[in-house]
Amino acid sequence: MARSNKPIVWGPFATGGTLTAFVTPALVVVTLLAALGAVPDLLAYERLHALAAHGLAKVAIAGVVFLSLWSAAHRLRITCYDLGIRADTLVATIVYAAALAGTGASVFYLLRI
């Protein structure tokens, strides 16, 4: 039996799962505060724009977006299978493509900042 190429998709999934476990809840609290009307300093236009204008910040943000979307996509793929959707190749293509498209969009917008 041939060794699988699953590590290609699983490596970023496991990395993203760990990353989102550490950072996502706190980041959601930040946007939740904004949603409740108590906009934190970071989300003031000037400060966030200045931050995102920095090259290293662009790389970090794009990295977080990619790993978050990829690990979510991978989980969604497995959940679809668990729920009885057997077209795994089609599901995998759609969810991974969506993760890459989302990452591509974030890179595109970050480069315009």
Binding site: R3, S4, K6, P7, G11, A14
Partner: peptide
């Protein structure tokens, strides 16, 4: 096993 196989692959 998954982690070790991933390290192998990369």
């Amino acid at each position: 096993v998954k982690i070790e196989s991933t390290v192998d692959w990369y």
